[in-house]
Simulated scan of single mutants.
Amino acid sequence: MPTADIKANGSNGPITIAYNTAATISWTSTNASSCTVSPAGWTGTSGSASTGNLTSSKTYTLSCTGAGGSASDSVVVNVSSPPPPPGSTPPPPGGSTTPSPIAGVPTLPPPPISIPGAPVKIDPNIVNFLKINLSIPYLTGSIKVPLLIGGFGQELEVTPGTKDYEVDVRGAKFKLGTQLKIQAGGAHTLLTKKITLKTKAPKQPVNFGDLWLGDLKVDNQVNFQDTEKFLTSFIEKNIEADVNADGIANSLDWAIILANFGKRGD
């Protein structure tokens, strides 16, 4: 049975590069007679090539065939926002200059500018804050969890334990009484979890519960492909096998994948 593995800058991805710069795509395979990397059109059972300077995010897919069947693997190269032109006006105080963690999705609009030391004004007609309750079982370090909130991207730094995290969404002006779709996960091996709720309060609680680790292949499930990916990364001493974010890939990460084996995201 053929196997296929593709990396960007030596990583299984997703990676993010600066606007109008290049990444190196490398690929390997076993038991394959032919392989193609799309959309670039590169061929060969192994190799590497430069993407050339990119101005938009791309997904590169390695497809291989052999006597025992076929195999494929993908890697995502995200491109950060272009720099502002010379002489342009900088963002206002309190504005966000951080790119959205989700490719192609705008970042949450910045909240209204407030006077330092003054109390935060609460608009009774919109959702001002989301009080997000979640935990990530077996997490040891801290990780940044991508959020998709009503079509806007945001990043949340999560630490071990069950906690409430407050997200300022005043800039988005979500009206009370409307349906709001919220998604968490999809990075650092986290399965995706989705919630749709009817907004009822200016400080809206959102209970995600547990987010699950172990999706090394980033296909929103934990299965045999993730165990194979872990073993390959572990042998190569690749930090991507560090599932619990403690800075080292070891038997604890393997145990987490086995504990969450069979789980699927939304």
Rank of each mutant, 00 (worst) to 15 (best):
T140R: 14
G150Y: 07
G104Q: 01
G117W: 02
K121M: 15
G150T: 08
G141K: 08
K144I: 15
N128E: 03
F152Q: 03
K131W: 13
I102Y: 01
P137N: 06
P146E: 02
Q154W: 15
L139T: 02
P137D: 08
G95S: 13
L134D: 05
P119V: 13
G150H: 07
S96D: 12
K131E: 15
P119N: 11
P101V: 11
V127N: 01
T107S: 11
F129A: 09
L148Q: 09
E155S: 14
G150K: 05
I143P: 00
P101C: 10
S96R: 04
Q154I: 12
P146W: 02
G151L: 14
G94I: 13
N128Q: 05
G104V: 01
V120T: 15
L130C: 03
S88H: 12
G94T: 11
I126M: 07
F152K: 06
P109D: 02
T107M: 05
N125W: 10
T140P: 02
E155H: 06
I102T: 02
F129D: 13
G150I: 11
N128F: 04
I143E: 00
P110C: 10
L134W: 05
G94M: 12
I115H: 05
F152A: 01
I149W: 02
S135A: 13
S135H: 13
S100W: 01
P146L: 06
F152V: 03
L130D: 02
L147D: 00
L108T: 00
P112R: 07
T89E: 10
P116W: 08
T97L: 09
E155I: 14
N133I: 12
N128P: 04
V127L: 02
G104W: 02
I143F: 00
P90Y: 05
S88K: 10
G153A: 00
I122L: 04
D123F: 06
L147E: 00
P101W: 07
I115N: 05
G151T: 14
P109H: 03
I136T: 12
T107W: 02
S96P: 03
T89D: 10
P91L: 04
G150E: 09
L139N: 01
P91H: 04
I102V: 12
Q154E: 15
G117L: 04
P137W: 11
P92K: 15
P90R: 03
Y138M: 13
N133A: 14
T89W: 04
P90F: 01
P109C: 03
S100V: 03
I122F: 01
L108Q: 03
P92V: 14
I132W: 11
P119C: 08
P92G: 15
I132Q: 05
K121Y: 13
S142D: 14
F129C: 09
T98K: 10
